[in-house]
Computed example of a mutant assay.
Amino acid sequence: MRGQCRRKRRKAEDALLRLGRYEKRIKHSGVFLFSLLSAPFIICFWVISQCFRGVLKILYYKPYGINPKNKARLEFEVARNSKKMGEEKIKEVRSTVVEQYSISIERAIYDPCKRDFVEGSFPRMKEWLKRYDTDAYWLVISLQNDMDTTIEEWDIDLEFSSALKIKEVKIEGIEREIPCEMHLKSFKIAVPKEYGIVIPKGGAQQVYFKLRAEKPKTQYKIRGVFKSEITGDVPIRPKEFMYLCDADVSPVAVKAELKKTFSEKEAARLALSFKTVQELDRMSNHDAKTEEYSDKILTLKNYTEGFSEKFTTQVNDFSRFMEQEQMRYLDDEYKRKVRRFCTNLVDVWISEFLKG
């Protein structure tokens, strides 16, 4: 009996073991079948996700030039481009501020040989120069304040060739001396707030720079910068002009220029005649005697005889005028006439002997 029970128990255990194996096979088959059926869906989802990532790169990364390979790289690129955008925004704001706080700058060159400005018409500036000095070259800078704010403190920095010099500076309507710094190839004026020389809102200031050059008949260029706390640095556009000659140019420099057109002997005579013209021009600013003028005119005739009919006519007219004047010293009315004769002599001499 016991043997039969053992056999029956063993058969039951074997049946249960086989049943467990069948259950595992069924489970594995189910998982396999589920995997097999869900695989297309998984592949489709993966394809869709990759397409979505590609579209995201085109729409988001491309405008910033980013090609991220990992998260850290992406964060770095985004941060860098955010900084660039910030800097561009600052520049845009600064540009807007400069437009709001603007100043218009006009510049002109007065040529004593023309007795007028090289370009443009500036009657008010011309009247000021007539009262001060029309025998020199001048750079005039007009500063027009287009803002609703008064500029109380301001500077002008100029740059130019080393052969050009600025002898003095004047501000229209201001008698006091303006602080300035002179260096080789540069000149600077600084108008402090304490001086009270403001550029009023909607108003203007004219600044006059007296120019000098040792070499006549030379092309020069002047540029610069206007500075103030309100406007920042505003460039003054370059201005080119021909410095032909004026009454203060050295006769030695004139002779060097004359030798390009005339012989050595002729250039020497004409250089001496220019020196005589300069002496007459200086005499007209002082109480010179009538006979002193007559002596200089005679000397001038000897130097320039046969060179220019126009200049000879001018000298003869001056000589006849002085012969009619019998007084030992000239009165105020005749001084003005003599001054005009001397000025005309300078202009005609330059026109006849240097412009050619």
Rank of each mutant, 00 (worst) to 15 (best):
L129I: 10
T149N: 11
I156N: 12
E159W: 02
H183M: 10
C180W: 04
N145H: 03
L129A: 05
L143K: 08
S161M: 02
H183K: 14
S142C: 04
F160Y: 07
I174C: 05
S186M: 07
S162N: 02
D157V: 05
F122Y: 15
E172M: 09
T134G: 08
V118H: 06
S162Y: 00
E177L: 05
I156M: 10
A163K: 06
M147A: 10
L143R: 07
D133Q: 09
T149H: 12
N145G: 03
V169P: 01
V169E: 05
E172H: 08
D133I: 04
H183D: 11
L164P: 03
L129G: 06
K130F: 06
E127M: 12
G120A: 11
E175W: 04
I171T: 10
P179S: 04
E175T: 07
F122V: 01
I174W: 12
L164H: 02
L158N: 02
T134P: 02
L158K: 01
I171C: 08
S162H: 01
D155K: 11
S161A: 04
D135T: 15
I151L: 15
I178A: 02
K170D: 09
K130R: 14
S142Q: 07
M125R: 10
I174Y: 09
K165A: 08
I178G: 02
K165H: 07
R176G: 00
K130N: 11
E181V: 13
Y132W: 08
E152R: 14
L143H: 08
I141F: 00
E177T: 10
R176F: 00
N145V: 02
K167A: 14
S121H: 10
E168D: 12
I141Q: 00
E153C: 13
I151D: 15
R124N: 11
M147N: 08
L164V: 01
S161R: 02
L139V: 03
W138A: 01
K126Y: 09
E159R: 03
W128R: 06
I174E: 12
N145P: 05
V169A: 08
S121N: 12
E168C: 11
R124F: 11
T149M: 14
P123Y: 06
E159L: 01
M147R: 10
P123C: 13
A136R: 14
F187T: 08
M147C: 11
D133Y: 04
S121D: 12
I156D: 12
T134Q: 13
E153W: 03
K185T: 10
E168L: 13
